Simulated assay, not measured.
Amino acid sequence: MLVIGPHLSISKGYANVGREALTIDANTFQFFTRSPRGGQAKPLDMKDVEQLSQIMENNNIPVILAHAPYVINLASKSEKTRKNSYELFEDDLDRLNRMPNNMYNFHPGSHVGQGVEKGINLISESLNNLICDDQNTTILLETMAGKGTEIGSNFEELQAIIEKVEIDEKIGVCLDTCHVYDAGYDIVDDLDGVLDHFDDVIGLYRLKAIHLNDSIYGLNSHKDRHAKIGEGKIGQDAIVNIINDKRLRNLPFYLETPHDNIIGYKKEIELLRENYKDL
């Protein structure tokens, strides 16, 4: 079964987002926990959460993905920024722990001149204070394109964070197809090689979700500009290969393609379902 869905706004409530996803034949969805720029999140309405849980159970939605706000930077050289990032992260985990099956994806951060090693140490230090044994949510490090001083544009940096996390069963990776291609991993002509390398460095058992995006600028560009499926440098054929790959096909896929409305996601989901091979 292809588990695929779009990125949707939760401004009208979680249950309404679940219903909206079903109208376009999605069986999962991603959402920002709050504004991408940070700030306060709406108080959780537990009746709304219970309705979402029922929708998920009745419609075979196995998991949903929460995306952290972009302002979080646990690797910042600014103590104030790290403190604010930590508090946002902590609040999100507390809220997600009261919601049905979910994961929490975040951008590892930027070392802003301190060096990769220092940034990795700061990220893992925060994660060790944030992660607890009884949390329900799996935290995902997202693969990055390599802009500026971003951490996580290669698998070795992600693994360096993971191996410093003490409760490591609560952490995994979200692979963004645009980001890894822009970072220099050739998922178009050498998908097997990229996955073999991921397995050697991190372990494919850590791969929990995929952001399915085409790329405007392409291989080694380090630009991080998403394109609609089939309209970028990755191309439709390579995207179809990804959703059908024996090592990836059972993961949840999340579309972050640039659409003005939900109809664009609907067309992409239709396209991908038509090209998904049932085994």
Rank of each mutant, 00 (worst) to 15 (best):
P69W: 03
K42S: 02
T23R: 11
Q51A: 15
Q51E: 15
M99S: 09
K118N: 00
G39K: 01
S53P: 06
R19D: 06
F29Y: 15
I123W: 02
T28L: 14
S126T: 05
L93C: 01
P108A: 14
R37P: 06
L65E: 11
G119F: 06
Q114L: 09
D48C: 07
F32S: 07
A26P: 06
A41L: 04
I64Y: 12
Q40P: 00
S110H: 12
G109E: 14
N129E: 11
M46L: 13
M46V: 02
R34P: 14
T81K: 08
M99E: 06
R82Q: 07
N129W: 06
L74K: 05
I131C: 11
S53R: 02
T23G: 04
H111A: 08
A68F: 06
A75I: 11
T28V: 15
V112F: 07
N58A: 11
P36A: 12
L65H: 08
M56Y: 12
I64S: 14
I61R: 03
T33P: 10
Q54Y: 08
G38N: 08
L96T: 03
R98K: 15
L130R: 09
M99I: 12
K118R: 02
S126E: 10
I131F: 08
H67T: 04
A41M: 13
K42H: 03
N60K: 10
T28P: 15
I24G: 12
F31M: 09
I123C: 02
K80V: 01
E125G: 03
D48S: 09
L122P: 00
V112W: 06
K118G: 01
H67R: 12
L74F: 13
L130I: 08
E57F: 08
Y70K: 13
L96P: 05
I72W: 08
L96K: 06
V71Y: 01
D94H: 02
R95Q: 04
D25G: 07
N97F: 11
S124H: 01
Y86A: 04
A66V: 01
Y70V: 08
P100E: 11
K80R: 05
G38P: 03
D92L: 02
K118A: 03
T33N: 06
A26K: 13
Y104W: 13
A41S: 14
T81H: 01
S124D: 07
R98Y: 05
S85H: 01
L44N: 00
G113R: 10
Q114R: 04
M56K: 09
G113N: 10
R82K: 12
I120S: 02
L88F: 07
A26C: 10
D48Y: 08
S35K: 00
A66S: 15
D48W: 11
E125L: 00
T28N: 15
P69R: 06
F89L: 10
E57Q: 09
L122F: 04
T28S: 15
I123K: 02
V63C: 14
A66H: 02
A75G: 11
I72S: 03
I64P: 08
Y70C: 07
R37L: 12
K83H: 02
E79K: 05
P108E: 15
S124N: 01
E57Y: 13
M56H: 07
F31K: 08
N27T: 10
V63Y: 14
L122E: 04
F29D: 04
N102P: 15
M56A: 15
Y86E: 06
D48L: 12
D48Q: 09
